[in-house]
Design a protein around this nucleic acid. Structure first.
Lengths: 159, 159
DNA sequence: ATAATATGTTAGAGCTATCTAACATATAAG
DNA sequence: CTTATATGTTAGATAGCTCTAACATATTAT
């Protein structure tokens, strides 16, 4: 299934998914806190999600994910994690920025792109040694030019 | 200035900016065609942008960017280009996907991230030789494991 | 010059997502 | 057990972005 949701609905599903993992249950209040919206806003979101059978919610009770809602929430959460890693560890942006940007971008990644990005992040971060080019990129970003050895080894490698 | 707009308003500014460059002028019809919306929709967008002094538009006339509108449109267009390059040339996703994803993601990139990404794309694509790791990543993506030489050279480089 | 076509505008509707104010229920503290 | 506080819900408003239908103006072709 995993029918397409609006970016915002994905945010709610992700928040609920993560709250369930972290705190056991997701409540209207905790969802609101996490997403920085008021409780009535959460309520109307929950109602829309209920209609689509993505969550279950009884008056004054916990918010629970259906099978389909859980799949979406987990997926979004996964994309989020990969993106954060990419932004902070590879691109090298600061914590705060990568956290904020990841929240936004996660909704725009097609499955294909998410898949490739996951692979890239694994490839780089699980490498048996820290890749040299990553250090070189950092140098390039800071100095606006490549370190000398990028040129030195030209012939050796490409010849 | 470059005050913050909604993602959708950014789309309109970008479209107008690019139409001006490509076709000399931006018309309600050409904007609609590019963004795949009807003319009344373009109209209401233009009105909102006018109120914010980002475009100028007389009845039945061309749509023009103000100084501030132009700055935003150019910026978004730039982010778009860099993203497309990153997705297609580095991540290696197909044309169609990178075009579509770039359209979405461009609105979510903070200036900091866009800046870093631009630098990364330059660093990689303008390199004096095609970086070996990029070929290795492609191998990794297709085969699920690193090519042998990633390990072979372990001691040489890191020791 | 007039008719046909393309382009542009207005009016009105619908949905998402948000808010505040007012009210209702649960939970904790005394 | 009653009161105070925290949590949750309903109602009603606003704003963005989109549409269709109806109407208006420009442009093109005959």
């Amino acid at each position: 299934m995993k029918s397409k949701q609006t970016a915002r609905m994905e945010d709610y599903l992700e928040a609920i998914y993560e709250l369930q993992k972290e705190e056991g249950v997701a409540r209207v209040s905790s969802i609101g806190r996490r997403l920085q919206v008021t409780m009535p806003t959460v309520n109307s979101a929950i109602n829309r999600l209920s209609e689509k059978k993505l969550v279950k919610h009884d008056r004054y009770g916990d918010v629970e994910l259906t099978r389909e809602g859980l799949e979406i929430g987990r997926e979004v959460s996964r994309r989020h994690r990969v993106l954060t890693l990419f932004l902070s560890r590879i691109l090298g942006v600061d914590e705060e920025t990568s956290r904020r940007d990841a929240c936004e971008i996660e909704h725009s990644l097609s499955p294909k792109t998410a898949d490739r990005l996951t692979s890239l992040v694994e490839f780089i971060l699980d490498a048996p040694r820290q890749p040299e080019w990553l250090r070189n990129f950092d140098y390039y970003y800071r100095h606006g030019k490549r370190p000398r050895k990028c040129y030195e080894r030209f012939d050796e490698e490409e010849g």
